[in-house]
Amino acid sequence: MRWLCLVAVLFTLVAPALAVEPDEMLKDPKLEARARDISRELRCMVCQNQSIDDSAAPLARDLRLLVRQRLEAGDTDRQVIDFLVARYGEFVLLKPRFEPQTFLLWGLPPAVLVCGAIGLFFWLRKQPPADAGSPLTEVEKARIATLVESPTDRTAH
């Protein structure tokens, strides 16, 4: 099913070359490693759901070079990302920030888990213990008596 998005976007634009190209890489391996980590968090805006680290689009290359330029200029990771968000908007982040418009996005998974757990807790507590069971009431005893008399009707528990 992946092919559809690819059909639509990727391969009509560019011939896929490499993502990160040898000439882009920084001399300093530490800085380069940081650049790669940052690149994985940033979206190539003309692609579908690809990070600039993965994408072969020219725009992704420009962004990779930009990230490396900022790193060489001495920016922290945070500053590089802030710079790109200021320039291209939140859309560039593959992991959206926790802010009012994404509260629901970040909040929903834990909320589902917590609510589910609480719901389960009360549901299980509501159940009488599986082994013991309370003593039979008079009504139940009478019902058993009728059931025993008509052995065919055994569907009810």
Binding site: R40, E41, S51, E90, L93, L94, L105
Partner: peptide, 12 residues
């Protein structure tokens, strides 16, 4: 709903 564009990808 709002016109705001965000991305939700692998890191999320």
């Amino acid at each position: 709903l709002t016109g705001a564009k965000i991305s939700v990808g692998g890191p999320f």
